[in-house]
Simulated scan of single mutants.
Amino acid sequence: MIRGETRMPGIKANGINIAYQDEGQGPALLLCHGWPELGHSWRHQVPALVAAGYRVIVPDMRGFGGTDVPDAVEDYTILHLVGDMVGLLDALKIENCTIIGHDWGAPVAWHAALMRPDRFRAVAGLAVPWSPRGPHGSLVGMARAQGLNRFYMVWFQEPGVAEADLERDPYETHRRLLVGASGAAAAAGKGWPLVIPDGKGLVETCPPVESLPDWLSEEDLQTYATAYRRTGHRGGLNWYRNLDRNWALTAPWHGAPIRVPACFIAGSLDGVLRMPGMDKALRAMEGVTCTDFRGTTLIDGAGHWVQQEAPEAVNAALIAFLQGL
């Protein structure tokens, strides 16, 4: 069980206390979750990767679960997030590892590989391909310039607005958001929209869920709801509130490729892949933005929560990548 779920002490790293799971022996793997999740999202990967001969470390990321939730918005930049992962390796006395990230954890993993190839010897991104710093500002800045003020990432920017919506009923929030971004919801045309209608919040734009899918149990849902009922959503939302700041901070790496071995895994029905520019980002990883790219695996029928919706296929793809290093 993730230590953060039982509120057990974690380890001090990069100035905060990080709750984490540490299983197995062998070459180290660091698994970074996204929003709105916890380290629990990797529950199907940990035993498979341990059985394959790896030491698997799964933190609750900054602002989530059992890990500290700093007060200031500016304490959630990409430099803090990568720094947390470097600090965690230092605290555990691990020289280097392969880093694997899903959703928001993917940009953390990609940037970790870009910025510290001495510590992160390979990288696997799930759901969100590597999209280097562009010349025209962040995704939020570009959306605003196009008048997309109800684009969900822009809607997240004002402190307190999204919190009020997401925290009203943590159980219902996770029930709708998790199922709403699944492959089955996408196939049925019931996914949640990228642009939130005027006068509404994100949760109510997601259709009610009649029954849970096989990949999401009632126990899993309660794990998320219990954690977020305690922590709220402010920490995770602050990751989005630093997108403009991240664009400024990453200027020194503008144009630099990722040089360590890399791969990408996603569900074929993931809504992220339909966002503007993602097709270009996918093509560019093939030897342009990643100089040692080992391939893309698209898992038929899976949606955004690919490692939970199709765990066996994801585990097989990850192990094949790792064994090829």
Rank of each mutant, 00 (worst) to 15 (best):
C206Y: 11
I196V: 15
A188I: 00
D198H: 11
C206P: 10
A187F: 06
K190E: 15
V195A: 15
A187P: 00
P208R: 08
K200P: 00
D198Y: 05
P208C: 04
G201T: 03
G183M: 04
G189H: 09
E210Q: 12
A188Y: 00
E210S: 14
A187R: 13
P207Q: 02
T205K: 05
S211E: 11
T205M: 11
V209Q: 08
G180Y: 01
P197H: 12
E210R: 10
A188C: 02
G201K: 05
G191Y: 04
T205P: 02
L202R: 07
C206W: 12
K190M: 15
A185L: 04
C206H: 13
G189M: 10
I196M: 14
A187T: 06
K200N: 06
P207E: 04
A185G: 10
W192V: 03
P208F: 10
P193H: 14
P193K: 13
K190D: 12
W192N: 00
K190N: 14
G189N: 12
A185D: 05
A186C: 07
W192M: 04
G199V: 03
A188H: 02
G189V: 07
A186E: 08
A186P: 00
G189F: 10
L212S: 06
G189W: 11
P193D: 13
P207I: 04
G201W: 00
D198G: 10
L202Y: 04
P197W: 07
A188P: 02
L202E: 07
A188L: 07
T205I: 03
G191F: 05
P193M: 11
V195P: 11
C206S: 15
P207A: 15
L202S: 11
A184Q: 12
V203F: 10
